[in-house]
Amino acid sequence: MSFFGKPKYSKILIKKKDIPPGLWEKCKSCKEIIHKKQLEENLMACPKCNFLYPLPSAKRIESLIDEGTFVEMFADLISADPLKFVDSKPYNVRQEQSLKKTGLKEAVITGWGKISGLDIGLAVMDFAYMGGSMGSAVGEKITLLIEFAVERGLPVAIVSASGGARMQESTLSLMQMAKTSAALGKLRRKNLPFISILTNPTTGGTTASFASLGDVIIAEPKALIGFAGPRVIEQTIKQELPEGFQRSEFLLEHGLIDMIVERKDLKDTVHFIFDFFMNNKKKLKKGNNGKGTLKNLKLAKSII
């Protein structure tokens, strides 16, 4: 044996060849090993425990809109940098990096398409792009979409995932809250329904504007939804927050949202609600020409 020299026991490497990287994942919630493809097919919900991973905006649109009917609008709009904002890096560098990282130009995709055959305007925010924050472009795209819907008579759904107003545009971001909310005021006056869909997380200026203005508000299970972030509240009241505070179930209990809907059921639910509200007035004849009312009045008098 000495011919081969000292055996090199210590150099043995255990290669995880049986789990190629990128194919399998350990669920953050239930710790089960799950197949990535299966996770994607299940709309990024853990097949074992139903824990919801962020769903990229493009996949979300795919999951809601009939195949081949989505028309993206205002796709090229991005925020300018009028403040020349610099923190640890300049804002425009952040924008470029976010584009590279996510392939998205902005934190929202807007457009229109069919949901089970019904035309709707749709905006989907994406948390991956700068925390889904709302700056000038996000506000402008959402406002343009709502104005388009008002003009065309379309209902609107917005899927939110956002940390709030984008700090790098300061008050200009803040003003998008007023702008988008004012546009929704026009939609409401036109009697077009708006469904707000809240996903994890939706906080700050987004919650304090369009996201809270749904005629019907739907949340995904266990999503963090609130105005102030939990850390800010903890610092203010100097107490630990209870388990489940600011989660969808908490909001439902406090009357702030209409329902919690699983991701796979979202399309059917949204379609049902829009279908319920749209096109009723054509079918119904308005009033009864006042004849019935007069008769009832006479009857009432004769009783006295």
Binding site: S181, T207, A208, S212, L213, A228, I237, H254
Partner: peptide, 25 residues
């Protein structure tokens, strides 16, 4: 706006959002 538990429970975000819409009209 006040960041408190009660404020969240009673819909701080909704209160502000509604004001934005209603004031615009």
């Amino acid at each position: 706006a006040f960041p408190g538990v009660g404020a969240e429970e009673r819909g701080q975000a909704e209160a502000i959002a509604s004001n934005l819409e209603e004031m615009s009209l």
